[in-house]
């Protein structure tokens, strides 16, 4: 079986852990519970008839209280950069983290996720504007850990890019 390490990066409270919980356990909790350090989960995806085992490193959100340790990124085949659609500055943080990812891992695939698509009333990020940001890898993927919309697709998309790129 192909085994790949991927990381989830982003500001705090953007929904990284919720995305993993949705993918791995098909559950969602409204209650925000901050991640301290790293949570590691595993998920096997079936892609084109092949099983791909993802070792998912759900990293603590970065802010003034916690900083990302770059050594956590070592060996990552790709990453999901997660932003919160209701908090525009989290897009900036996601893009900064993408640069740090590249410093450590080189040009590995990274998908930008705009999460919390269910909170349309409070949505304050335009994915098209985000896509236009200089250096974006690809179109952002709009997700909702609450409804599950786009979640599995985002992980699959990253896995495909990892396999396609031979990373």
């Amino acid at each position: 079986m192909i085994r790949k390490k991927i990381c989830l990066l982003g500001a705090f409270s953007v929904g990284k852990t919720s995305l993993v919980q949705r993918l791995v356990h098909s559950i969602f909790s409204e209650r925000y519970q901050t991640t301290v350090g790293v949570r590691i989960e595993k998920k096997t995806l079936m892609l084109d008839g092949n099983d791909v085992s993802l070792v998912i490193w759900d990293l603590q959100g970065e802010d003034e209280f916690q900083k990302l340790r770059e050594s956590y990124l070592r060996g990552s085949s790709g990453a999901l950069l997660v932003a919160d659609g209701t908090r525009p500055h989290t897009v900036d943080i996601a893009i900064l983290l993408r640069d740090r990812l590249r410093d450590v891992c080189g040009n590995v695939p990274a998908e930008l996720l705009i999460n919390k698509a269910d909170l349309t009333d409070e949505w304050a990020v335009d994915p098209r504007a985000v896509a236009a940001l200089d250096g974006a890898d690809s179109e952002p993927i709009v997700t909702s850990a609450k409804t599950g919309a786009g979640v599995e697709g985002a992980f699959e998309s990253l896995a495909r890019r990892i396999l396609g790129g031979g990373a």
Binding site: F12, Y32, Q33, T34, D63, F65
Partner: peptide, 24 residues
Amino acid sequence: AYTERQELLQQARETRLSFEALQA
């Protein structure tokens, strides 16, 4: 120790989220 640290961090971040929401 983990629980204590998480609770402290949680409180700090919830305060930050409230602050951001209030700012918006």
